[in-house]
C-alpha cells in the first residue's frame, strides 16, 4: 500500500485502540456499549481499507446493529449499579 493510505490506516488503528480503552474505562455501562459500537465502526473502515467488503458488511451489520441492540436491551432490564 502507498504512503498516504498507510497513514490513514495508522490513524484508524490509533482510533481503534483509543475507543477500546474508553470502552473498558468508562463508568457508565451505556457509554461502554456506545464506545464498543464506535470500535466496530473503525473496524469496518479498516476492513474496507484492506479490501474486504464482505467482512466489512458483516461487521457493520452484526457489530454496530445487532450486538448494540442486544446489549442495550440487556442493560435496560438490569439495575444500574457497580461495585
Amino acid at each position: 500500500m502507498n504512503l498516504l493510505l498507510s497513514y490513514i490506516y495508522y490513524l484508524f488503528l490509533l482510533l481503534l485502540v483509543i475507543s477500546a480503552v474508553f470502552s473498558i474505562a468508562s463508568k457508565n455501562l451505556l457509554c461502554s456499549v456506545i464506545f464498543m459500537s464506535l470500535f466496530n465502526l473503525f473496524m469496518v473502515i479498516i476492513f474496507l481499507l484492506l479490501q474486504a467488503p464482505d467482512v466489512a458488511m458483516a461487521e457493520a451489520v452484526v457489530g454496530m446493529g445487532f450486538t448494540t441492540a442486544l446489549f442495550i436491551i440487556t442493560i435496560s432490564k438490569t439495575k444500574e449499579e457497580e461495585k
Binding site: 464482505d54 458488511m57 458483516a58 451489520v61 452484526v62 446493529g65 445487532f66 441492540a69
Partner: peptide, 8 residues
Amino acid sequence: QGGVIIAS
C-alpha cells in the same frame, strides 16, 4: 449479511 439486515 442480508439476513442480519432483515433481522435488524
